[in-house]
Amino acid sequence: MKGRVRSLWMKIHTYLACFFIPFLILYVITGLLYFLGIEGKSAEEVEVIIPIEASWPDDEKAAKDIVEPYVIKHKRLPFPPDYYIDKGHEWHSWYGYKQEILLLKTEDTNTVRLLLIQHDFLQQLMLIHKGHAGIFLLILGIMLGLSLLTTMISGVVLALTIPTLKKTSGLMILLGCVSLVFAYFIGY
């Protein structure tokens, strides 16, 4: 490989690694904590029983109309970006990395239960890891994955073009492939 091409690969490798190292550290730490069962908890939870005159809301707008005055009263605006509804229509949920708003059915058809949940810092970090922190962090997470792929490929290209590293690097690639196949077949 010519010196200019090798230099280009080294620059790509270096600059991507330097830019993405903070995100990588965040993802590694939160992934490890999640793997160990440490996910954070609710920092604050408010429960409100709301009387309703109409029937259980079937869509987001109707549910939002019921809960919005209470969300405003408890200073929980804006609504989190992700909206979910239970397939059995037992709950509505607005979910984000800082908070969650849940509207739940009760046994009394004239009332509904509202939960306003603030996530603690650790749980917010976990939710960033899971892609619930808005479009900007989601895009950065995708870019991190692509950067890791590019950084690994550039490292392999460099290793395979340096004569003193070529043989050992080839053996390490083979060992990595064998390990992956082995792990797949002994898994459940």
Rank of each mutant, 00 (worst) to 15 (best):
V46E: 04
F20A: 03
L33M: 15
E60W: 04
K11E: 08
P22Y: 11
L33C: 12
E45F: 02
T14H: 08
I49R: 14
R76N: 00
Y15G: 07
V28C: 15
G37D: 14
P22N: 10
T14P: 02
I21F: 15
S55R: 13
F20S: 04
A54S: 12
F23R: 14
Y15L: 12
L26K: 09
H13I: 05
R76V: 01
M10A: 09
V48P: 00
Y70A: 00
K11S: 11
P69M: 07
H74S: 01
Y70W: 12
K75N: 08
K73T: 00
M10L: 09
K75G: 01
E53N: 14
W56Y: 13
P57I: 03
L36D: 15
I25A: 14
L26E: 08
W56C: 07
V46C: 03
A63G: 03
P22E: 07
K41Y: 07
E53L: 14
V28M: 15
V48D: 01
W9Y: 13
Y15T: 05
G37E: 14
P57Q: 05
A43V: 10
W56T: 04
I66Q: 02
Y34V: 06
L8N: 06
S55K: 15
Y70K: 01
G40Y: 09
V67D: 00
G40Q: 11
K75Q: 09
L33R: 11
E47F: 07
E47A: 08
I50Y: 04
V48M: 04
F23A: 13
Y34W: 13
I66L: 10
P57R: 07
E44L: 10
V46F: 08
P51L: 10
S7G: 09
K11C: 05
Y70V: 02
L36E: 15
V28E: 12
H74I: 01
I49T: 13
P51R: 14
Y34T: 09
I49L: 14
I66G: 02
K11Y: 10
L16W: 13
V48K: 06
R6G: 03
V28G: 13
A62K: 07
I66R: 02
E68A: 00
K11R: 11
R76Q: 00
L16E: 11
Y27M: 13
I66A: 02
R6L: 04
